[in-house]
Computed example of a mutant assay.
Amino acid sequence: MTRRTDDHPDLTDPRVGAPFFSTWRVGTPERQREAAATIARTWERRDWPATGLLGYHVYAGHDGSTLLHHSQWADEPAYEAFVKTHRQERVDEVDTAVPGIERVRLDRYRRYRSATQDGDTRVPGCVVIVEVEFESPDPERQRAWVDAVLEALESEPNPHPGGIGAHFHLSTDGIRVLNYAEWETAQAHIDALAAPGDGVGSATELWKRVQEFPGVKGSTVSRYEHVLGLLPG
């Protein structure tokens, strides 16, 4: 059985050994809504496909064109088994209803560290995905960059009150870091970016170290709204 939930995923769930993120380009807000509704129907009319799949969540990009997918797997073999037995029928049904979807990329990650506030029960109104790409694979550099960001966050003299949490993931290929950042609202994130400094941080030496970190090839920042959560029933 598959059940729908409005709850956001728990990014710190210790059962999740293989968090995956992928992006679709669908083109318009109408097709975003249509694709999300089709995913819901496709999954809800079928049994939950794998005990190793702990949750599947879909987010609509504020750009009006993209969908972000976050699946929480116990391990990678559970995903590989799903691909062999259950994935294609779901893909075919969605593509029939919403033709022309561009599946940009599926990235495999491991959560490294999170920054949250104890007892904070606020529900994110906006999820901000920050992706940083490095020039070459280097797991040690991935960890060092995240450590530098968290040190800057911990010493931030003017933390924005709209920030809820940040969850840093390292791609298994050693190339990328993904920060799944939870914010009260999109406007709170926009206001934080507009404050003095480069990005959401103040103009401190620790943030300067992050901004000038060696080996960074590029970065992107995208805002999303959680539109669908699916869990085993």
Rank of each mutant, 00 (worst) to 15 (best):
A78S: 15
R110A: 10
A97E: 10
R111H: 03
R110N: 04
L106V: 14
D92R: 06
R87E: 11
V83G: 03
L106Q: 07
R90V: 09
Y109A: 01
V98I: 15
H86S: 15
V83I: 14
D107Q: 10
H86E: 14
R108Y: 06
E102V: 15
V94C: 08
W73M: 02
R111A: 05
Y79K: 04
Y112H: 13
D95R: 12
P77S: 08
D92L: 14
A74N: 01
T66N: 10
H69T: 10
V98Q: 05
Y112K: 05
A78K: 04
F82A: 04
D95G: 06
L68W: 02
K84T: 10
V91K: 06
Q72V: 03
T96P: 01
T96R: 14
A74W: 01
V83M: 14
R90P: 00
A81F: 03
R113S: 04
R90Q: 11
A78R: 03
A74G: 08
E76D: 07
R113M: 10
A81W: 03
H86C: 09
R87N: 08
S71E: 11
S114Y: 04
S71K: 01
R113G: 00
R87F: 11
K84R: 15
V98E: 03
Q72H: 12
V91I: 15
Y109E: 00
V91G: 02
E76V: 13
F82T: 03
R113P: 00
Q72R: 12
H70E: 06
T85N: 08
S71R: 02
S71A: 15
Q72W: 07
S71L: 11
I101Q: 03
P77V: 13
D92Y: 03
T96L: 14
D92C: 08
W73S: 00
V94I: 15
F82K: 02
R90T: 10
H69D: 01
L106N: 03
H69F: 13
E102A: 13
L68G: 07
S71Q: 09
D92Q: 07
G100P: 05
K84V: 13
T85Y: 07
L106S: 04
E89S: 12
F82I: 08
D107R: 12
V91P: 01
V98D: 04
S114N: 06
E102L: 14
D92T: 12
